[in-house]
Computed example of a mutant assay.
Amino acid sequence: MFQRRCYTRCDSSCPPDEMDSNIPAVVKSRSRLSIARLACGWSRQAWLALALLALAAPQGVEAAAAWVESVQVPAWVVRNGNRLPVKAGLPLEAGDILTTGPKARLLLRLAEGSLVKLGPNAELRLQALKPPSAPGGLFEGLLDVVKGAFRFTTTLLSKAHRRRLDVRISNVTAGIRGTDVWGKAAPDKDIVCLIEGEISVRRGDDDAITMSDPLSFYVAPKGQPPLPVRPVDPDQLRRWARETDIKERGPALSVDGAWTVYLESLSSREAAARSRATLEGRGFPITIQTAQVGDKTFYRVALAGFRNWQGAVAFKDGIADALGFRTAWVAEQ
């Protein structure tokens, strides 16, 4: 007999058309994970944890130059002319174009261990990604931020690797030698903020400017000369960081996420396939799961892989409800 734990907005009942006396409805409280963070970064212990996690890349991405570590949907990848929803664990390659929708976020990991974050309504083109051909070799890449906010951060693991990486923020190119850089291609200006380390920035044919003072930023207004590099206000930096950070309990998907939002349960495989196609076009990596209840087979349209219960419920009560899925429910796999 199919067993599950399910969670809904008002009570712990399962969809009426799938009710079965042998399916318990249990609401389980989840222990809270407390992570101490710096104003715009992680503590040293968290960095160490990330470095250890990087040693075990998700299955199937061992040879990839980069992959998606976490995604707060909706987000898409364009590859060879095909536009598909982004899913956690997706291997990335040179030529991929990543876009995010409103309130969406992306967390990418490069093969050398560094992290790349992308904020909402953004577009990132992976113009070049070339992992080292031998241990100790050079990781090379060119990331093109067409619009939106991004953040590049090295980890303890990536600091031991050599890299030649440029990030182009609209008309400004930043040579990444720093360990923590935030930037944004905005409609009226391009911004590069050095949080830690060192970078060189250049707009077009202008002379390159070396930035080595932590917590300083460069602004190039559209159609005007760049402004002098100056210190960034801590409150402004916190606001910028929130544009690219995925909240700990936000509706994000990860490779090892154990929570699923079931959007609807249908008796027709064809109807479920149509629903899946529609939702994938909107940037949601949908799966269809079958459930046998008595002599009936149901096809569940699901979004799996939420990192925690709070994030799954946030998605169900927010996006899923806005899409018209009033009877969606959450379950732990």
Rank of each mutant, 00 (worst) to 15 (best):
G175N: 15
G81A: 06
V146S: 07
A94S: 13
S114A: 15
A128V: 10
D207W: 08
L53H: 11
C10A: 12
D17W: 11
S158M: 12
L50V: 11
N80T: 06
S212K: 15
S254T: 08
S200L: 14
Y299A: 07
L124D: 00
R4Y: 12
A328N: 01
F298A: 01
D207M: 11
K159F: 09
T153H: 11
C40A: 13
V86H: 02
V201F: 03
E123P: 01
A186T: 01
A64S: 11
E332G: 01
E112C: 03
Y299R: 10
T8K: 11
R32I: 13
I35L: 12
R83S: 06
L50D: 12
A122W: 00
D17G: 00
P231K: 03
N121G: 02
F284K: 03
K28D: 12
A56Q: 14
L165T: 10
A302K: 02
Q3E: 10
G148R: 01
D213L: 09
D317Q: 11
P226I: 06
P231N: 01
P102Y: 02
W67Y: 14
G41L: 09
L323E: 03
T153A: 15
V330F: 03
Q292D: 15
G305E: 04
G81L: 05
V293I: 14
A57L: 08
R282E: 10
G318Y: 04
D235F: 13
A312Q: 02
E198F: 10
